[in-house]
Structure formats: C-alpha cells, structure tokens
C-alpha cells in the first residue's frame, strides 16, 4: 500500500471520529454520553496532529484535553444537581438564533480558508521532531517570552476566580 492511500484512509477515520463525536455531543440526550462523545472528538484531533507530524502537540492535546479538561467537564456534569439522570431537552425557543450564528461562523471560516494563501512549510523545516521541541523551547523563552509568562498569569487568574466561585457556593 502506498503511503498516500494509508494517509487518506487514516484521515477519513479521524474525520469520522471528530465530526461524528461532535454530532454526538449535540445530539445525545444524556449529558454523560455527550461528554464521552466530546472525548472521541478530541481523540480525532490528536490523530490529526500525529498525521501532521506534530508529536508534541498531539501528546499535549491528549494530556490536556482528554486527560484534564474532559475530566473536568465530566466532573462538572456529575456534580451538577439533576443533570446526571434527567434527560435534557435538545432545543429551546432560541434555536434559530443559534442556527444563524452557526451559518455565519461557517461562512466566515470558509471565506478565510478560501482567501488566505496558506504557506506550506518545506520539508527541511520538519527535519527532526526532537530538534523541533528544542526549537520550541528556545522560541518560547526567546522572542515569545512575554506570552509565555502572561499565559501563566492568565492561569493564575483563572484559578483564583474558580476558587472564589466554588468557595462561595459551598457556604
């Protein structure tokens, strides 16, 4: 089997996972199932990163999105009163607004995809993945050091906010 065919088959499976998972999230009546579908969707994205030879990003996606954020979402569902067993209704009276927003977003994304001339990296740039991680570290602490530090401040703020909110509701 030539490489291309394998790649296309894998890509098709991943797309099925990602889009099918996304469809499952919005269509399943049980919230826990919805969250599990979300995990499936995240797993598809992990696969995309692997196909793009971005091993570090794939591992981070798996670690953060499936290993941490999905668990947080599952906890949130399990800890919310009455969300666990009750089967939620799938729509409310604002469905047409949502539809409008979705269509608009799709149009904007499609236009952007169409208009922008995406630069394709030459093969040399992807020479060695372990060099890439080292480069990433050097870039993060060199030109991009401000975003690097600001990100951690952002996380600190998020944590403070979360602790305050959670404490208040408990007392």
């Amino acid at each position: 089997m030539p490489t291309n065919v394998v790649q296309i088959v894998v890509f098709a499976i991943l797309t099925l996972m990602t889009l099918g998972g996304g469809l499952g999230v919005v269509s399943s009546r049980n919230l826990f199932h919805g969250a599990l579908f979300l995990v499936l969707s995240f797993a598809g994205v992990v696969g995309y990163y692997v196909l793009l030879d971005a091993g570090f990003l794939a591992a981070v996606q798996l670690l953060i999105y499936i290993g941490a954020i999905a668990i947080l979402i599952l906890f949130a569902i399990m800890l919310s009163r009455g969300l666990m067993s009750q089967r939620q209704s799938q729509r409310n009276e604002q469905w047409w607004i949502a539809l409008l927003v979705v269509v608009l977003t799709f149009v904007v994304l499609a236009v952007v995809l169409w208009q922008v001339d995406w630069p394709v990296a030459s093969d040399q740039a992807l020479a060695s993945p372990s060099v890439a991680i080292s480069q990433l570290g050097q870039e993060l602490l060199g030109p991009y050091v401000i975003p690097f530090e600001v990100a951690s401040v952002l996380l600190l703020v998020a944590l403070v906010g979360a602790v305050i909110l959670a404490r208040e509701t408990e007392t």
């Binding site: 091993g55 570090f56 591992a59 981070v60 798996l62 499936i66 290993g67 372990s130």
Partner: peptide
C-alpha cells in the same frame, strides 16, 4: 523511540483515568 517519549507515557495514562470514570458511572 518517540521524540516525546516520556510525555507520551503521561498523556496515554489519561486513557486509564477515563476508563475508570466510565466504569464507575
């Protein structure tokens, strides 16, 4: 011998956590 070797180990460990939550629920 992945270049992200040890990170892969930690990341894949998340699958087990998910399995536990699924089983318990």
């Amino acid at each position: 011998d992945l270049s992200i070797g040890i990170l892969y180990v930690v990341a894949v460990g998340g699958i087990g956590t998910m399995a536990v939550l699924m089983a318990g629920w």
